[in-house]
């Protein structure tokens, strides 16, 4: 079992495409019937690699013509573009097209990628690697902060050869509660949750832990 403490693997940086490359992406996307409209003159296109895919990468379009700026992120192999719409389906679609290269080292980045792009009815899921670095910790009362520290269970990764799946024991924040759970990641990337236990309730993040905090309207 790998114990993962407060260490977070460095995310690859976003790489901005030049106008010619960006134009090609916009042209490819424009051929789709369900394509969202982006301004050609004011849309930045950037990409970054994902350690667990060999062919697919992330492509981010940011339209600066609107206020606030409008951003959509796609999974792409350079030909097909799958919009990340906040549900699990787009990621599972890419998983089918480009079989995952999961290892004990990159299964956690895969889960964090998944959680940062998929929401449930109660909002975002956030995996806590280090309680001392939990988002918005300062906004909680002393008692709550103490509760977080006391209830935190370190992340542990194991491979269950019998099921052919990774099992990640972790502390998660979801829907205003802190809980422990086992996250099961099958080799095909499908995720499920087992052994969920409530650790602490009334822990509400004032904003998105992923930094999406625009108020619409």
């Amino acid at each position: 079992m790998i114990a993962v403490e407060g260490v977070k693997m460095a995310q690859p940086q976003w790489i901005r495409m030049n106008r010619e490359q960006a134009g090609r992406v916009l042209n490819q996307l424009s051929s789709r019937d369900d394509a969202l409209v982006f301004s050609r003159d004011a849309t930045e296109v950037a990409w970054r690699s994902l350690a667990f895919f060999s062919n697919y990468r992330l492509c981010r379009l940011t339209n600066y013509a609107t206020m606030p700026t409008f951003t959509m992120t796609y999974l792409t192999d350079g030909t097909e573009y799958i919009a990340l719409d906040g549900t699990a389906n787009p990621i599972y679609t890419a998983d089918e097209k480009d079989p995952l290269l999961l290892t004990e080292e990159n299964v956690l980045p895969y889960i964090e990628f998944f959680f940062s792009h998929v929401q449930g009815s109660e909002g975002e899921v956030f995996l806590i690697r280090d309680p001392g670095k939990m988002p918005f910790l300062d906004s909680f009362t002393d008692a709550q902060q103490q509760g977080v520290m006391q209830n935190f269970k370190p992340v542990g990764v194991t491979f269950d050869a019998h099921r052919g799946a990774y099992r990640i024991e972790a502390t998660l924040h979801y829907g205003g509660v802190l809980m422990s759970a086992a996250i099961i990641v099958m080799k095909d990337g499908k995720i499920s949750f087992e052994d969920q236990h409530l650790l602490l309730s009334g822990i509400h993040f004032p904003d998105s832990p992923y930094g999406r905090n625009w108020i619409e309207g």
């Binding site: 424009s30 789709r32 409209v37 982006f38 301004s39 050609r40 003159d41 013509a65 206020m67």
Partner: peptide, 9 residues
């Protein structure tokens, strides 16, 4: 003017 700009997709 950039807003709203001409659509391309």
């Amino acid at each position: 003017k950039q807003s709203p700009a001409a659509p391309c997709i």
